[in-house]
Design a protein around this nucleic acid. Structure first.
Lengths: 335, 335
DNA sequence: GTGAAAGCGCTAACAG
DNA sequence: CTGTTAGCGCTTTCAC
């Protein structure tokens, strides 16, 4: 069976081979100065000749800090989340940090389990991408933390990065209105995630600003952000005979499911009903009815999250507690 | 600034609080026996009262093994990969292991960088999901390793888990043939990944078995597995005037791009040209022309990978060097 | 059933 | 510029 057959070298081995002390080896590895160019050369040669790689576990124990940054994400299978996760991991890597991506499937007990592990391995910081739970985990309270796409109930001293969801909601409602809709429904995520909440608020504000009354019976929600959940839900809605000529879905997957349900019931999109989504994922472009949607700048969100968490770890002053990223309207064929 | 304000307790603190030795605390934590029920109770109380979580870094240093398992994946933004990664992470978690998901973007230097990090943190095993590089990293050679969806050039003593790509290729070609196609093209990934290779071999075999000659001018490839790359390529192909009435794409994204290119040039699918993909990702179901495709069982692949790597780590005998997972035909509207 | 003590590989005083 | 050494938090003999 595959086994580590050659036990790996330690810094002691290297120091012997190089004929210097471990301290010196450590210094050249960490480029801490106080060694001659000559020594450096010899040590570096030995290191690469022997394929030596420093034991980060030992280093972590000694220095009491690691390069680990936990990234908690509800569903990496969802393109929106995976895009920002990838962006975060890549940015962090370039700064010498490693992103530990933890997929929770929105399950709070799994989330807690991961937080314990992350804590155990002494992570230096934590990034939450969306999610719906309040952090009760006492031990995490004192860690540099950034939240993407959802504000925690108790912010503490952490940072929130969000799209301008409110404007996004307004844009969506406005687009529908301009396209002639007067009975504008909304399908959103049932859980009170701040981002979905804000989108909905923007939508509502815009409706009322346009002189349309907010119709409570046209507010739908699903327990799970998925194509299937949305489709099922909207099929039900239509069964019940509720009529609307436009609908804002707080997520592209919800919009995609909605479009499917509408088609299945013979409703033409955008002829009979117009729909607007949120995110601008790839699938929304490739759909049978390419989706009009509100685009979020995932790359920027990820990069900023990485930059800010590093600043926090370094003890730099963060001068904001919230960073809002602009969104934009992408007009396609469902409006 | 957010800072770890309360330094975390160590096993020494706990031992003092509980009035026992560190050895005893360690024993109850690890359930190593040799302590009384009474002691256990007291220690466990202190632990949970104080929210103590053992320092896994120190433990890792002492025991010279960690619960880390590296998972190298080319593009987690791709649904196929993210599905298996999630499955792996979840299975590993249930066995007390932690999956370190590393997204390489197919960039070999990033891959190498991650391998060094993983090595540095003393991972216990390694899982490669697809990818196109040969592992030159000497240090990784002796580690339990499983490959999913691609066989390495030098297998060594590792394990390969693959779909039955050959049969999949045959099914695809056969489906096209049965649907009446006689000029069957193939679009595949340019790099010599074993999985794509096998799919192509199956396709070719089936064509010849059916009495169709293999037409070299109908074999296309792209440098990148993506919707856009496929679309661009197929637009070019049609520009050049090559004619075909069926096409097997070795990936759903390639198929989706192909369908888009065909539509853009006024070709009807499946009327003028029929197409078959591979993977059965969600988008292929939601596409304007829902794709006929070969379904891979990602969940099973992920679960088996996790199970097997754990066996390897435990030194159990692995009695196969290759595990093949069945695929199945999903007939939809492009044939 | 319990404790004392060595030591994992590394860094960081400190001494020279 | 270089070396010696204590000790990070834990597990694990070994002795009682």
């Amino acid at each position: 069976m595959p086994k580590r057959e050659k036990k790996s070298l330690s810094i002691v081995d290297i120091s012997k081979l190089a004929g210097v002390s471990v301290a010196t080896v450590s210094r050249v590895i960490n480029k801490n100065g106080r060694f001659s160019a000559e020594t450096q050369k010899r040590v570096e040669e030995i290191i690469s000749e022997n394929n030596y790689v420093p034991n980060l576990v030992a280093k972590g124990l000694k220095t009491k800090k690691t390069n680990f940054i936990g990234v908690i994400v509800p569903d990496i299978t969802n393109e929106f989340f995976s895009m920002v996760a990838v962006e975060i991991q890549n940015s962090l890597r370039q700064h010498g940090y490693f992103a530990l991506i933890c997929n929770t499937r929105e399950d709070i007990s799994i989330e807690r389990e991961y937080l314990d592990i992350l804590n155990g391995i002494q992570m230096s910081g934590l990034i939450f991408i969306s999610g719906n739970t309040r952090i009760e985990n006492e031990s995490v309270r004192f860690l540099p933390t950034v939240y993407i796409d959802r504000a925690p109930e108790y912010l503490g001293k952490s940072l929130v990065i969000e799209s301008d969801n409110y404007s996004g909601g307004r844009m969506a409602a406005n687009t529908l209105f301009e396209a002639g809709c007067r009975n504008i429904a909304c399908l959103r995520y049932a859980k009170n995630i701040s981002s979905h909440q804000r989108r909905h608020e923007g939508y509502r504000y815009e409706l009322e600003a346009r002189g349309l009354s907010f119709n409570a019976s046209l507010q739908f929600s699903v327990d799970e952000v998925s194509y299937n959940a949305a489709k099922t839900k909207m099929l039900e809605v239509m069964e019940s005979g509720l009529a609307f000529d436009g609908i804002f879905c707080t997520t592209d997957w919800l919009a995609l499911g909605t479009v499917a349900a509408l088609s299945e019931r013979g409703k033409k999109v955008p002829g009979d009903v117009k729909v607007v989504g949120f995110d601008d994922i790839l699938s929304s472009r490739l759909s049978s009815s390419p989706l009009t949607t509100i685009r979020q700048q995932v790359d920027i969100m990820g990069r900023i999250a990485a930059d800010e968490i590093i600043k926090m770890i370094n003890g730099e002053n963060i001068d904001t507690s919230k960073i809002e990223i602009a969104v934009s309207l992408v007009k396609r064929q469902t409006t």
